[in-house]
């Protein structure tokens, strides 16, 4: 590839140890972001989107989480094997993240000013020694950027004193305060009503456009992906199942799961993603062998139950993890027929 990779995830495996056993959630995730790119990530609830993003920043709660394998590179540096000191340089000013649930992301016993102040103070080495007053002045800027009224008063407020929409904006402001090279936006505004969600997304788009930030946008709403992103990944049960340029993916979805998603689109009025596909995401305690989608796939073949499909390149801008697109596809079909 000639384009420089900003972020690259290779064969990432993440498990969660829970009471009943081990949840094998991420099952060899491959994912990348190029500089300046806006990448979408879609998939039904519980498929591992947030887990993948938290792994990038090394903020998964360990335990219960465990990185069982794989590599993550940010600008060529190996994040998973990085020393703590180097890691703290990547976090914030390298990569920052807007959390899915703004209420959970804010510490209930600190004011917005205390939390945002700490972020601002460590966003740049030269901010480290600034006075409280100066930090406060700097903290006001991102709050103004996300169009929050009366930022002075906001700094002295506690999270419970704010509305859901305000908390969401605060979280966006906080993530932007570090002026990151890569911004991860995990379903921004999903917890809010549709109009506010719309405002928040528009605001985010403008801010990111201004600064030329690279973005990973996670969302349940395919329309948003189509309008906002350059490239899309589709995720199912801890695997990336399809990757394509946004236009391509919408014009010609290849993976049976993606096709199901697209068919479900008319029904998607802010609701869940998977209503078009019968069945449910499999249990991570004892995931199906081979292709994890085979329990729900309308075109399942025999090989799908035995072997895990790798990414097959359909063309330069499109790859899909499904045996239907294997060169040897016809043979797989014959095998299935003779059984």
């Amino acid at each position: 590839m000639s384009t420089p990779r900003l972020l690259e995830i290779k064969d990432l495996r993440v498990e969660f140890k829970v009471y009943g056993g081990v949840l094998k959630v991420l099952d060899g995730v491959n994912f990348s972001v190029n500089a300046g790119e806006k990448v979408g990530l879609v998939g039904e609830t519980g498929c591992g989107k947030t887990t993948t993003m938290k792994a990038i920043l090394r903020i998964l709660p360990i335990p219960p989480a465990r990185i069982a394998g794989g590599e993550i590179f940010f600008k060529g540096q190996d994040i998973l094997r990085m020393r703590k000191r180097d890691l703290s340089k990547v976090r914030g000013s390298g990569i920052s993240m807007i959390f899915q649930d703004p209420t959970a992301a804010l510490n209930p016993v600190f004011t917005i000013g205390e939390q945002l102040g700490a972020v601002v103070q460590h966003a740049r080495p030269e901010n480290r020694r600034l006075s409280k007053r100066k930090i406060r002045d700097k903290a006001i800027i991102p709050l103004k950027e996300v169009a929050l009224a009366d930022p002075e008063r906001l700094l002295d407020s506690y999270p419970i004193q704010l509305s859901g929409g305000m908390r969401q904006r605060v979280c966006i402001g906080m993530a932007l305060a570090t002026d990151p090279e890569l911004l991860i936006a995990d379903e921004p505004g999903t917890s809010l009503d549709v109009t506010i969600q719309d405002q928040v997304l528009r605001l985010l788009r403008v801010l990111v456009e201004e600064k030329g930030t690279s973005v990973i946008l996670i969302t349940h709403t395919l329309g948003v992906v189509r309008e906002t992103t350059d490239r899309v990944y589709v995720m199912y049960a801890g695997n990336m199942v399809e990757e394509a340029h946004t236009r391509k993916l919408f014009a010609e979805p290849l993976h049976p799961y993606t096709q199901g998603l697209m068919q479900a689109v008319p029904k998607l009025t802010g609701g869940g993603i998977a209503e078009g596909i019968p069945g449910r995401i499999p249990s991570y305690l004892d995931p199906p062998p081979g292709c994890r989608f085979h329990t729900r796939c309308p075109r399942v073949m025999d090989i799908c139950r035995r072997q895990k499909p790798p990414f097959f390149k359909v063309d330069e801008e499109h790859q899909v993890a499904c045996f239907l697109y294997d060169q040897n596809h016809d043979r797989h079909k014959e095998e299935t027929a003779t059984l």
Partner: peptide, 28 residues
């Protein structure tokens, strides 16, 4: 509390571990 999002959030945004645990985790 160490598994809570508000701790992950401060880590994610580059607040050093010392401050995350010594201040944000401790008080709550």
């Amino acid at each position: 509390n160490l598994t809570k999002d508000y701790i992950a959030n401060k880590r994610a945004l580059g607040v050093p571990e010392r401050k995350v645990t010594g201040r944000f985790l401790l008080k709550v």
